[in-house]
Design a binder for these strands. Structure first.
Lengths: 125, 125
DNA sequence: CGGGATCCGCATCGATACTG
DNA sequence: CAGTATCGATGCGGATCCCG
């Protein structure tokens, strides 16, 4: 757990951990469209708890990918927006989104093939 | 949990779940370099348990991203290779890897700034 | 409105042992 | 060599309550 395993600290792994956080990427993509408030994001994403939203936004802010602006109204208004750095990440993610749209069908087809194949071998009585 | 939350089934989410599996992407990138055997992958990745390796490879195979070939030697030899579909995904991931290499420093710098800033406000006695 | 704090279940994942 | 099966810890993430 502490021994330096090969490539354990390579940038790819670090970033993959960020991207692995699906909420983070989703929020980033959403914020590409423009600044949003806390509850706007909550409603827009769908299925995210306020805990995860708050937590994810905080880590995105920590990474310099999102900016948080608190406006002293009554009650308080908070606006989240994407930073230039965050924008470049979002752009790097975009090919992935495109791949997803283009190839999801193929993947699902492969899954069906795989599943029915393994069912056969089970049913091989 | 069952109500159709907005965009819950959009391709992006589905693929993000796959990419969110960091082992999966790591393995895919490794297999880009050429076919590998089970224990070769195990050693190459570093830090992955055999359970996760087996499990991840199986899901990659199910998705049609990786091909498994068992050769009936004694003892058995198994070779994993990337499929054409897998290759296109790996290519879609590449911008991300590049982004990681180029911007990791910036992210880490942002983290340090964030952390020292919050330390200040704590230390504000 | 925008969160923080707490409690807690459930799924992941690692470690270990065994098989073909 | 290439896995499967089982068990046990832990930590993620949802639900709830509360505060500024």
């Amino acid at each position: 757990m502490k021994g330096n395993v090969y490539a354990a600290e390579c940038p790819t792994r670090v970033i993959l951990d960020r991207v692995g956080d699906k909420w983070a990427v989703l929020l980033l993509l959403l914020l590409m469209e423009g600044p949003r408030r806390f509850n706007e994001l909550r409603r827009a994403v769908g299925g995210i708890s306020q805990k995860m939203l708050s937590q994810t936004l905080k880590s995105l802010e920590r990474d310099g990918l999102v900016r948080r602006r608190a406006i002293a109204t009554v009650p308080v208004t908070v606006e989240y927006s994407i930073t230039p750095l965050g924008l470049t990440l979002a752009q790097a993610v975009d090919p992935l989104r495109q791949w997803a749209e283009n190839n999801l069908k193929d993947v699902q087809a492969a899954q069906r093939r795989y599943d029915s194949a393994s069912k056969e071998s089970v049913a091989a009585a």
